[in-house]
Every structure is written in structure tokens, then in C-alpha cells.
């Protein structure tokens, strides 16, 4: 049993490493975008291969843990949660990569008034806040922290919903911003999806701890 617990702890540590890495990737990608920092964006693109390698390693270790230790109950929920969280984190890593590609491919900075009009920094702050919640939920098995993200995700949804009409207005005001406005709109959509992925992770943590399925339930209290 000691061995099984040790293997489980290794998976837990790998999951935490993946979470820290993907949070850092998205943080750096956003910083690169806001500061038009192509070098930092290149670093994110370069690090993406590390995210992918860790993703594969976690998947293989989960498979090995299932095959060799045939876990049940809480142990089974743990490995199922790690597998699913890993997929969500890898996708967050992909979004960070996508944002960084925009920075590298397009040298011109995004006009500050567009970033302000589309409440991009508020979105970024909300995502960071949600990351803090799931990190605490994961690291300390804190279901209360996991539950906090559902409400915060609504802020992201609202900003995303408003983005279309704001962009329309900004383009009408100045046709020159069309390219940058559409690019920012795409980044906002990525952020909105990152919010959904964080919600999925929170659901998995709650499932692991409480054996409670929240998926497709609508209301997450």
C-alpha cells in the first residue's frame, strides 16, 4: 500500500506542476500581449513543448496507476480527476500558445483604448483570481475554493457577451482598428474558454473530494 500511496503522491505532484506551468504560461502570454513583448511570447511558445511532454507523462502515469493498482472509491476518483484536469490544463496551455503567436506574428501593439473598452484587464484579473482558487482547491483539497470559480466565471461570460457590440462601435469610430479589434476579440474568446476550463477543473476537484457530479447540472452552489 505504501507503494500505491507513493505513486498517487507522484501523480498529485505532477498534476500540481502541470497546473503551475499552465497558469504561468497564460500569465506570461497575457503579459507579452499587453506589453507587446515578443521575447516573452517566444518563451511561452518554446515552453509549450514542456507542457505537452508533461501532459503525456501524466496520462501515461495515470494509465500505469490504473493498471497496476486498480484503485477504487476515492483513489479511483482521484486518478479520474487527474486525467481530466490534465486535459483541461493542456488546453489552457494551448490558449497561452495561441495568444503568444499573435504577439510574435504581429509587431504592432494593440491600442490602449481598445484594451480598456473591452475590459481586457478586468478579464485578466478575474482569470488570475480563479487560478488562485483552483490552485488552492487542488493543493489543499479545498472544495470551498473550488466552488468560488463558478460565480467568477460569470464575469468572464458577461465581458465576452458585451465584446461584440463594443468592437462594432470601436470599428465604426475608427476603421483602422479593425484588425486589432478582431484579434482582441479572439483573445477574449480564448479567455472565456479558459474560464470554462477552470470551471471544469473545479468540478473535477469537487468530484474527487465529494463524489458529487456537477457536470451539466447548471447550478453550482
Amino acid at each position: 500500500m505504501e507503494n500505491a500511496n507513493y505513486q498517487k503522491e507522484l501523480l498529485n505532484q505532477a498534476g500540481l506542476e502541470m497546473m503551475s506551468l499552465c497558469i504561468s504560461q497564460l500569465g506570461k502570454a497575457t503579459e507579452a500581449y499587453l506589453n507587446n513583448d515578443a521575447d516573452l511570447a517566444e518563451e511561452v511558445i518554446y515552453t509549450e513543448s514542456h507542457v505537452n511532454a508533461l501532459d503525456i507523462s501524466i496520462e501515461k502515469n495515470c494509465e500505469r496507476y490504473l493498471a497496476l493498482y486498480t484503485p477504487v472509491a476515492k483513489d479511483l476518483r482521484f486518478v479520474m480527476a487527474i486525467l481530466k484536469i490534465n486535459i483541461d490544463l493542456e488546453r489552457i496551455g494551448d490558449h497561452a500558445y495561441g495568444i503568444s503567436k499573435y504577439v510574435v506574428d504581429d509587431e504592432d501593439p494593440t491600442p490602449a483604448h481598445l484594451i480598456e473598452a473591452l475590459q481586457f484587464e478586468k478579464m485578466h484579473a478575474t482569470i488570475q483570481d480563479m487560478f488562485d482558487d483552483i490552485m488552492d482547491a487542488f493543493e489543499n483539497e479545498n472544495v470551498k475554493s473550488a466552488r468560488k470559480v463558478f460565480k467568477k466565471d460569470k464575469i468572464l461570460d458577461a465581458i465576452n457577451m458585451e465584446a461584440f457590440s463594443i468592437i462594432e462601435t470601436e470599428i465604426k469610430k475608427d476603421i483602422q482598428v479593425i484588425g486589432k479589434a478582431l484579434q482582441l476579440s479572439s483573445i477574449i474568446k480564448k479567455y472565456e474558454r479558459v474560464g470554462d476550463l477552470i470551471k471544469n477543473i473545479a468540478e473535477e476537484i469537487i468530484f474527487y473530494k465529494k463524489a458529487e457530479l456537477l457536470k451539466h447540472k447548471g447550478k453550482k452552489k
Binding site: M1, P71, V72, A73, K74, L76, R77, A211
Partner: peptide, 17 residues
């Protein structure tokens, strides 16, 4: 029993603890 046992003792036993 094997997915969500209600008693801690059951969980400890089936998970080999």
C-alpha cells in the same frame, strides 16, 4: 460500495488502507 462508500472504515478497507 466501490465508488462512494458511506463509511470511512469501508473506504479504508476497499482501498487497501
Amino acid at each position: 460500495i466501490f465508488t462512494k462508500p458511506e463509511k470511512k472504515r469501508t473506504e479504508n478497507y476497499i482501498t487497501g488502507r
